[in-house]
Design a protein around this nucleic acid. Structure first.
Lengths: 246, 246
DNA sequence: GTCAATAAGATTGTTGACAATCTTACAAGA
DNA sequence: TCTTGTAAGATTGTCAACAATCTTATTGAC
């Protein structure tokens, strides 16, 4: 492949938020070389082109993108920060491969922080202009959940909804952490939503969340969010264990 | 100053935990060059030798430690991961300077995750051998709280206790995140415990937590931990606003 | 046949030089 | 006086070569 001159997205995603007050530094529209490389690799990893456990050689990546190893090194550090890549001293980088226990850990943290996030949104007076957007997506969700063949649409919409809510959080730090954790569990969340039954269960949680958000009930939004993530955790792990048995 | 041949600590701290099961990779006893540099800088920042907002020049650090800029760059990335340093593209690094809103954000996240952590410990059957250690430190706390002159001892013991509990968590990811967040709020936590009255309030929370831990009551441990952190948040912010008014 | 020592190759870690970019100071014009 | 333009210096970004370390394959001994 030739030089990088396209496709900025995933890496910068953490910075594209929809807030107003706190964020002082304007986000740069240009991506640095390491960021561009990281974005490319990120896409491959989350899409599954690069399998978990697969090694990533600095030399090879540098050659592919026609840059030196310096920017590649930094790109790998960026991906490590997102948890997509694991770096071992003097042994190089590889696509992160999570154990079932680790998947559980991440979902537990996500549950707690999604609760914090959604409580914050429920208690935010400026949330009202977001609610129609959220409601619309949840309507889509309900429609997709009724059609067993639209599983992929359902999953993508859930992800979108999650990104929407995270971007709506007032806390830049919460956004950063949640985006990273969500990306790490992308593949497993997908696994947990692979049956129509699970999707019908999931849509109920979302509808309940919407109600709490509308009512401005922070505590309830928090509880609902936590339950939702914990549910998806259990679904993911169940499927994971099925797969592991073979 | 001359070459680095001493003082490893802060940076490696995140890896020195007291768990058993999950962690596969044995922690390396040697610190890489970047880690050593990061440890040195970390000490200066958390101790206040380097003031918030102060710029950190790669060249200068490289010269001081007699290394090239490569390892220094990486050290700064490590510190950025811990939130101790802020890196701006093409404008270099500086010691992180948090706004009051950001301090609040971090404490909120810490509250949620400390809750998760302490619930996990309360529900962990193997926690029993830790309880005496924790109980002893809380006894110390109670003693220090009674003596207005032992404020520093109180604060250091609180930090120690926190590190102890974080290290006891089964989740490596939780440990990593919590260590980073705790380090970022070190100076502010200290601020919140600067009056004898606050310390007497604080020790009550710790005693209640100990009870919940002994009883194995996860829910209660979680609630207590959350309240404790939120309390220290409010104390810190109150002091911060007092200081800002002058 | 299994295990340990060894050597060759592969890969990351470090370095110093060069390029690109940003900051600052200063001067000229409106 | 304020803004704009310019140039010098400072600082980070990138590169290619070298050093240190790890992995793997092979050999030899038990």
């Amino acid at each position: 492949m030739g030089k990088i001159r396209s496709t900025p997205h995933a890496v910068r995603a953490a910075a594209t938020h929809a807030d107003a007050a706190a964020s002082l530094a304007a986000r740069p529209l240009m991506l640095s070389l390491p960021e561009q490389i990281a974005a490319q690799l990120s896409a491959r990893i989350t899409s599954g082109i690069c399998a978990p456990g697969q090694r990533i050689l600095e030399q090879a990546v540098a050659a592919e993108f026609s840059v030196s190893r310096g920017p590649v090194r930094e790109a790998l550090r960026l991906l490590e920060k997102d948890g997509l890549v694991t770096i071992l001293a003097r042994r190089g980088a590889q696509v992160t491969n999570l154990s079932i226990a680790e998947v559980r850990e991440i979902f537990d943290i996500r549950a707690a922080l999604n609760g914090l996030r959604d409580r914050g949104i429920a208690e935010d007076p400026t949330r009202l202009k977001l609610l129609p957007l959220i409601a619309a997506e949840i309507e889509n969700l309900a429609r997709y959940a009724r059609d067993p063949k639209r599983g992929d649409d359902y999953v993508e919409t859930v992800f979108k909804l999650n990104r929407l809510l995270t971007a709506a959080s007032r806390s830049a730090r919460l956004r950063t952490i949640l985006d990273a954790l969500a990306q790490q569990t992308l593949r497993y969340s997908r696994l947990g939503l692979s049956t129509a039954q699970r999707r019908r269960q999931s849509v109920k949680h979302w509808q309940e969340l919407l109600k709490a958000l509308r009512a401005g009930d922070g505590e309830r939004a928090q509880r609902t969010a936590e339950r939702r993530v914990l549910d998806s955790r259990d679904a993911a792990i169940e499927r994971l264990q099925e797969l592991a048995q073979r």
